[in-house]
Design a protein around this nucleic acid. Structure first.
Lengths: 241, 241
DNA sequence: GATTGTCAAGAGCAGTGCTCTCGATTGTGT
DNA sequence: ACACAATCGAGAGCACTGCTCTTGACAATC
């Protein structure tokens, strides 16, 4: 039954190399799927042996596909980043007013986190002990912020009288570098800085809720999150309808 | 040599019960200290056996003092919450202007997190897998926000024209409940809501930096954090200088 | 058809949390 | 002062973990 799944997926992926390569690719995919499931019920401490057991193979055989447990974790992290970024991309609609655009993306990210709590914890939670994030993760990691950058670039924030807190000169360069990276180079540095603050607020707010800090305080979390995000869009200076 | 340390500390602690009780109390303290050190170099996966090894005793003997590894972790979490709250309390100076007060506390919290990264991860990072936060933690957890509440209560935020985003009616009650809890009941609910958003921004910003998301982007992190926090105080409506 | 590369399985090592039992020590009541 | 009870540390042991190495079976290639 495994082979059937493998063949189907191999067909879908399109890469028509040798049969062996296709099977191998499908095996690694299967492993990641099972590992993701185990991550969902077990938490961050993923057991290779348990994954192997569920797949009906010896634990040692897993090492043909992933050099170590950290390697498997890295693969899951990359996938999580991509899935997170994809959620943002799908939620973004260019035909919507800027503030609503930002809020919609933020809500989609929160919903993704609620649907994939352990994968969210994998990328934005405390780093796993012996693990060092490899270079593979920085690409997919920028995918999400690029969506936000697109919103900012398309709708340059209105200047907000009274908000002119002088940006320290030493921060000018790094902030404008970030603006370049997310392809919103036209933004003023204070606007970019406020947008970054809003970004950190989004992640902080999601983490706060997901990691249990909101228990026994606020129950209407969706509304609370949306309200907060709307306040932050006003801080950024995004026009609202 | 261990007994000497124990006696000294027992003298200091003052509780003059039986010798056995004092030694026991000091043993648990000693265990927590060693565990904290191991937490610092090893990360979240704390090894009871390693702690016991370092203390020169059998791993099974540890179970005389902590019923399980989770129990030891809980003790460390409670201590961390208290230490975190204490840092906030010490940083708060009533004779300072409101915005600067808020910023000073925020900076102190960030500094504490930088000095105790693993303890910070313990309380604000992803929850450890099989662990359920017991009731013991909610008391020390509110200690920090009460400091912020004190600042808000002593300096009711000025109303900010243009920021009147209607707070959803369903949020009125929970928000004012929070205001009550942190003893800032006089605050308006929108002001309280904005302060909460600022609080989540602080934690999000610290986590962002501490968990490595800021790598290769911003180097002047102290200035960056302070700038952001100042922006947020303006959002709250705290008077500056 | 023989060779080469790939794969899964098993045994084994060092480590983990945790339980149980067994002496030894200490504290307390008579 | 003595006996009883409570406490404590150590050791063995169980089931589990990540990981390595070796062995044998299979498939692709020349």
């Amino acid at each position: 039954m495994l082979s059937i799944v493998c063949n189907n997926l191999a067909m879908a992926s399109g890469k028509a190399t040798t049969v062996r390569a296709r099977v191998r690719e499908e095996m690694t995919n299967e492993i990641k799927i099972v590992a993701r499931q185990h991550l969902g019920v077990e938490g961050a401490n993923l057991s290779l042996r348990a994954v192997a057991r569920e797949m009906g193979m010896a634990s040692s055989a897993l090492y043909r596909y992933f050099a170590s447990r950290d390697d498997l974790l890295t693969a899951l992290i990359v996938d999580a980043y991509n899935s997170f970024g994809e959620a943002a991309e799908n939620a973004d609609d260019e035909n919507v007013q800027p503030a609503q655009r930002w809020i919609a993306v933020a809500k989609a990210l929160r919903q993704w986190a609620l649907n994939h709590p352990h994968e969210y914890a994998l990328i934005f939670g405390s780093p796993v002990p012996g693990y060092k994030a490899p270079q593979d993760t920085i690409g997919p990691a920028t995918r999400t912020v690029k969506v936000l950058g697109r919103i900012l670039a398309a709708n340059p924030p209105i200047s907000r009288p009274g908000d002119e807190i002088e940006l320290p000169p030493t921060l000018e360069q790094p902030i404008s570098n970030i603006a370049e990276m997310i392809q919103a180079g036209a933004l003023s540095t204070p606007a970019m800085a406020r947008a970054l603050a809003a970004w950190m607020h989004i992640l902080g707010s999601i983490s706060f809720e997901l990691f249990g800090q909101l228990n026994n305080t606020i129950e209407r979390r969706e509304e609370w999150f949306e309200y907060q995000t709307r306040v932050m869009t006003q801080l950024i200076g995004l026009k609202s309808e």
